[in-house]
Design a protein around this nucleic acid. Structure first.
Lengths: 304, 304
DNA sequence: TTTTTATTTTGTCCTGGACAACGAAATCAC
DNA sequence: GTGATTTCGTTGTCCAGGACAAAATAAAAA
């Protein structure tokens, strides 16, 4: 049963796993190999992690997901880590994104909601997703790494974006009905924001989207796609997926899927597209999504 | 690194943990104590669970979350388990819910979407949530246990409901601006549907809601509530939370929160309300939510 | 009936070793 | 020089079986 009593003091290993996303086994093996983290022990010899260590672990997890090697991060002292973080200072962005980033605070939730809504109206859905949401989401992540926004601020941002995107999907429903697209992610992939952006753009383009959310087992995807008479299966992969996972799952899926069902894949996880089997369409930029839908229609002689 | 190669054959323990939600430690200790599951081993002696076992484990997890004792479930053979499942056959429900339940299939996604949308229009948001979504969600879960709907069907249902609710939240925004409510769940609680329903009803009632999504650490909730000048903090607990977790987290939070910020708690996890500290408002039924908002206004002399 | 106290049940945590999947560098073929 | 293959160090996951506390249940007392 979960232990969650002490909210500010030290945390047992299970709570650290939950809070950082680092498996218990990994935490223990890091301690054994690198000497970090080096948690205190309670009367029974059970690990108790200090809030500072948990914070550093969260940071490490984030840098890890961005492609850094563990050995560099774990053995790094504060200053080395700071240098790595500093390297994340982004190239100058569009000024409207900088302004929005300043509003990503729980204390300014109302302003952020209003500003996002207004930007959507100004830009239209497609430009809003490509030119605002995509860079802004990255900037929020980077700002978190630099300690400029808190965990709660990031949660708030995700919630607001999800509200906006799902409302947009609802608003664009019924504009068209082809192609019929099934969207989801593989079981290892838990990030659903990219999927939602794709669904919104496809729906706006007149496709009829059905999303299963994240983490659908491969054979379930296969069965659902065949039985549901879909024209396209679209998968989203985030950067943390290994190249191997991506190509393996896609090739397996391509093999199990009827030939007439197209297979599309997008997201930051799509790096080495050369090892993909034939019949898989890599979507390297979110901005290409509408064109993919239009291309499909051209090839299949449909109007909407 | 994740292992996910064999999609239909046997799964390693990590994949089973991911698919069933049962921790690796628990799976191993069950095997040791009860002899179930009894997975095959690969050349290295690592466990390989059969798809049938994984399916049974998923079932057990579900019944576990509904309050059954592990020993009864794990040692039960197929027929005993079937009897338990049979006991879940629900009391007769409103006929419109039965009709909707029949549409919870990936193959009928379009019909389900249309029917849900139409029911929302007919009933209005509040009745839709209380009289349709709440019973229907329970029915979908029970139908899954009985094997009448698939995992993907349930995923689809969640996605559609989330689209509808978030679109409704967007549509009702700006109707009012008090009270200012912060919504979230504690770190152990990952179910967000109830939270979303509450947010929709509160927003429709004219409250200004800010949701942090699920799994916010207690001290983060505290800090965000104080700094964000909220009037109310609202938490949602599902049935799987132990009574202890619920009362502990609420009492801790009540103590750390300024007196003028109200603390509301709702969801199936709210059972023993007698051990709650003063100054915590239990919301035992989702239908009571609008009245709570109105009561707050009365007590604080606000109109909207 | 309600409260207190024993007794199960059950999940989480421990150690330290092992090995394969991964990434990167080095080697070889063209 | 460019591209494919092999080598090697790095890294995460898995194993065993013992231990103990928190939760749930049964029993006893008020």
């Amino acid at each position: 049963m979960p232990k969650d009593k002490p909210t500010q003091p030290h945390l047992p290993i299970g709570a650290v796993e939950r809070d950082t996303g680092l498996p218990k086994d990994t935490l223990r093996v890091w301690e054994r190999r690198y000497g970090f983290p080096n948690p205190a022990r309670d009367a029974l010899g059970e690990r108790l992690y200090s809030p500072e260590d948990v914070e550093k672990l969260r940071l490490i997890k984030r840098l890890l997901d961005q492609g850094h090697r563990p050995s560099k991060l774990i053995t790094a002292d504060a200053s080395t880590l700071a240098a790595l973080i500093e390297a994340h200072r982004p190239s100058p962005e569009a000024p409207h994104c900088e302004a929005l980033l300043a509003l990503v605070r729980v204390t300014r939730a109302d302003e952020l909601r209003a500003a996002l809504g207004q930007t959507l109206l100004q830009q239209g859905l497609v430009r809003f997703i490509c030119d605002t949401l995509t860079p802004l989401t990255r900037m929020v992540g980077e700002a978190w790494v630099r300690g400029e926004v808190q965990v709660v601020d990031e949660h708030l941002y995700s919630e607001l974006v999800e509200n906006i995107l799902r409302a947009a999907i609802g608003a664009h429903l019924g504009r068209g009905n082809s192609p019929r697209i099934l969207l989801t992610t593989v079981p290892d992939e838990e990030h659903g924001l990219g999927l939602l952006m794709a669904e919104a753009m496809m729906t706006a383009e007149g496709a009829l989207c059905t999303s299963l959310g994240t983490r659908t087992p491969l054979n379930d995807i296969q069965r659902a796609a065949s039985e549901g008479r879909f024209d396209v299966v679209a998968l989203s992969y985030s950067a943390r997926c290994s190249v191997r996972t991506v190509t393996d799952s896609l090739n397996t899926l391509r093999q199990g899927l009827p030939q007439q069902i197209a297979l599309w894949a997008g997201g930051a996880g799509l790096r080495a597209t050369d090892k993909l089997a034939a019949g898989i369409l890599p979507i390297l930029q979110i901005a290409d999504v509408p064109q993919c839908v239009r291309d499909w229609r051209t090839q299949h002689g449909k109007r909407t």
